[in-house]
């Protein structure tokens, strides 16, 4: 079974991000880049499926500039078999739909039986690309997956999605798109052997033209990035616990009108 895992490289969750000079993107100097955390769940799940079935191929794919190779290399160190890098300035300002078009074109070339995405990339926080790739391909999609099981014949998958108030388990024919939620698994760390081995694995470079895609403008574009408006400074309520509790409740009712 061939499993495609789209991964996005994003700033480390702990790094400071600042608005860049053009006011439309972040200042990239000094940023540590990581694989978006949900995408690590996706890579892990794909590896587990391959291990459980005793055969198959896990292919990671990422769209982005040169630095993205590093994220692909990390996925290979985790155990992915090979990687695809869609690297073309035509996608510099890609919105989720343009990204989805490029990924869908890779899917058409690769013809995987399953695709596992992260539930959202933690830079743009859209959560849209998995659904949009599925729609473009006419595949079913299942969001916020907490568990999955593929039948022995490799024809159908059962996946449990987190919804308000519970979990819904759906059965879908393959191929199908899953979007991974935290809780699906615990991603492994690359071993030294994995890191060494990753150097020999293939990363294929693709341009828009290789995917048969004509240049197209994004449908959604960033007008401006802004820092958060400052929150008005808060108040520390001191004194004996009982008095502080009384004062807090009074303030919540009378000043903040929050209760």
């Amino acid at each position: 079974m061939k499993i495609l895992v789209p991964i996005k490289q994003v700033p480390d969750t702990a790094t400071q991000v600042k608005v860049g000079g053009d006011q439309r993107a972040i200042e990239t100097a000094g940023i540590t880049w990581i694989i978006s955390p949900y995408d690590e769940f996706a890579v892990e799940e794909a590896l587990r499926i391959k291990e459980k079935r005793g055969q198959g191929e896990v292919v990671t794919v990422s769209l982005g500039p040169d630095r993205v190779k590093e994220a692909l290399r990390s996925s290979l160190a985790m155990g992915a078999d090979r990687a695809i890098h869609v690297n073309d300035p035509a996608f510099a300002e890609a919105d989720t739909l343009l990204t989805a078009r490029a990924l869908a074109a890779v899917f058409t070339q690769e013809a995987p039986q399953l695709a596992i995405f992260g539930r959202q990339a933690i830079d743009d926080d859209m959560g849209a690309v998995p659904a949009q790739v599925a729609e473009l391909l006419g595949w079913p999609s299942l969001y916020w997956i907490m568990e999955e099981a593929i039948d022995a014949g490799g024809k159908t998958i059962r996946a449990g999605r987190q919804v308000e108030g519970g979990l819904e388990v759906f059965e879908a024919p393959l191929p199908c798109v899953l979007a991974a939620q935290k809780g699906l698994n615990e991603p492994r760390y690359p071993t030294l052997k994995g890191i060494m081995g990753a150097r020999k694995k293939e990363i294929k470079d693709l341009k828009a033209g290789d995917l048969g895609l004509a240049p197209a403008p994004p449908q959604l574009s960033v007008v401006r990035l802004e820092a958060l408006p400052p929150r008005s400074p808060g108040r520390i309520i001191g004194g004996e616990v009982k008095d502080a509790a009384r004062e807090l409740v009074r303030a919540l009712r009378e000043e903040a009108k929050a209760i």
Binding site: V17, D123, D125, R224, L225, E226, L228
Partner: peptide, 9 residues
Amino acid sequence: VYAGKLLSK
């Protein structure tokens, strides 16, 4: 965006 560290228009 960026985990609520910035706002995007």
